[in-house]
Design a protein around this nucleic acid. Sequence first.
DNA 1: CTGTTAGCGCTTTCAG
DNA 2: CTGAAAGCGCTAACAG
Lengths: 340, 340
Amino acid sequence: MPRSELGPRDRAVGIKQVAQLAGVSPGTVSNALNKPERVAPDTRARVHQAIKELGFVRNGSASSLRVGHGRAIGLMMLDLGNPFFTEMARGVEDVMSEREYAVILCGSASQEQREERNMRMLAAQQVRGVLVTPVTDDRESLALLRERNIPTVMLDHAATRTDQCSVTVDDVTGGRLAVSHLLERGARNIAFVGGPLTTRQNADRRTGALNALQSAGRGTLREVIVGEMTSRAGHKAAEQLLAELPDAIFCANDLLAMGVLRVLLQQDIRVPDRVLLIGYDDVEYTLASAVPLSSIRQPTYQLGRIAAELLLDECDHPETHAHKQIMFQPELVIRESTSP
Amino acid sequence: MPRSELGPRDRAVGIKQVAQLAGVSPGTVSNALNKPERVAPDTRARVHQAIKELGFVRNGSASSLRVGHGRAIGLMMLDLGNPFFTEMARGVEDVMSEREYAVILCGSASQEQREERNMRMLAAQQVRGVLVTPVTDDRESLALLRERNIPTVMLDHAATRTDQCSVTVDDVTGGRLAVSHLLERGARNIAFVGGPLTTRQNADRRTGALNALQSAGRGTLREVIVGEMTSRAGHKAAEQLLAELPDAIFCANDLLAMGVLRVLLQQDIRVPDRVLLIGYDDVEYTLASAVPLSSIRQPTYQLGRIAAELLLDECDHPETHAHKQIMFQPELVIRESTSP
DNA sequence: CTGTTAGCGCTTTCAG
DNA sequence: CTGAAAGCGCTAACAG
């Protein structure tokens, strides 16, 4: 039996069946598909007619086996539950879908182990390239891809090497913008609530915060580091802050800030009157929050789109492709939570 | 040249190289990988040693070509920007990642055309199975998969056929719960704000709303149908409602509700004093909204997990697998937006 | 328990 | 511009 328990259709339709119906050879069908310009217009038409008639869909595995890679790219992100990342994913999916590429979604949950396992899986899938927000800096898991000549572009992370593309946002500046703003509004005892500093985003935003204090020559930073960047973690962080309330709180993302805000309001601590609060990412859902949240805005969707385009450029034009390290500047968005 | 511009490693490492190093035949390596019980423990150990030493990663395309399908599943959702769907996606990804399956992410943006294009793409990728929230009812695009014997489970959609699994939540009941609650709170002129009724979720929630009115024997439903289920669309809908304000507004999801809430507050229309407001999905981010939102809760993450498990069961045990149509019951969550 | 071997469907020279 | 044929790396029969 060719395949176990196949349905009515006894032989799957392949390029061969198409060729037969169109009265050409299999090679010509392949050419009509992949290099249409090398096939006479009327032959091409006959082929496409046959394809439609038979409902032929190309077997990607066979193609991939032959050419060494398939029409799929990997997208590895830190946290699938975070709207920042899912918004980036939307950007990626939109351009990949236009170009008929499949997107293989992977979440590392910020664990190097999961990241590496996923990378191995992507390699096994013969992906054409990978978009990755790495858990830590240039890791072994990236070497795995490099060895196999799989193009990689960093997403929301600046490449330390010049042999690859990256698209990111200046988080140090973002942190500085946030804390400078708090200082201008008169805050002195400032708290920083963030995730693990091993994650570049957190580390940079904190650095920016410290820079702001230093150049202002005043203010102190109390740090509360939590395990995740969720509103639940924001809750916990806020509870720690209640004992000795700061003037202002800078959260490394909006989810944390929303968790913090909730606790403050429950405790009848007025924002911004008693405490200033600012988040990061400017995700859409915070617009209707109890106190509209000041935040640091990033071109999130665009990040995904541009990274995807860079990757495809590298794949399609390996010769002419020039690696780019793109860094966007973030933007301060002032709302009620810091406007006394 | 075997591959264009390959790096230092001249020949990629395949099962053959592993076999040579381990001193066994390629077939044995394959068995050690796929049917470990049929290989003597010490041989298996030698094979794994060789695999590690060479950094071998199986070529999934070759495997897929041989067996007829690869280790990937397709996940097709209506809207990648909606936290409800991304939360489901998290559930799916978590179980697939455990089982070493790749997840190919597709967004149909509620367009049948995109859905069909993506289905063709998934078929070309030789996916093992597909999880899909269909745009409309049993569509041609699903036939495409059935013809090819690709197992499919419906996500957030009840299967109309008994030859497939589905995991969904009773949206009619959800709609009824919401509107019954509004009626109990004294509302009579109720507005329904929802997306296109061609989408089952919207249609069902509306039906539930009408049911509630009917069985209560009082109240009227004004309908505002918008194109998308985003907070932006909620804005627009609210503006339409301002002319003649209802007692209560039932939104077909929380994003819409947040958009509506924003407009109401800007207009100094008190919620819940002047207007009651209830959403749907109970997404996490609404917790810190200006007025905490009553909503209809669904086991979103679990939906994804369970659907994924059903699909894998069907793939791994086609003989013993029994198709299940699972329907969860939603739950009313009362918060401030409906608690005068 | 292990080795041998045919071939999955496609792309790509190379001839014509 | 089109046809013929080799072979990508792996798995599954089958033989030993």
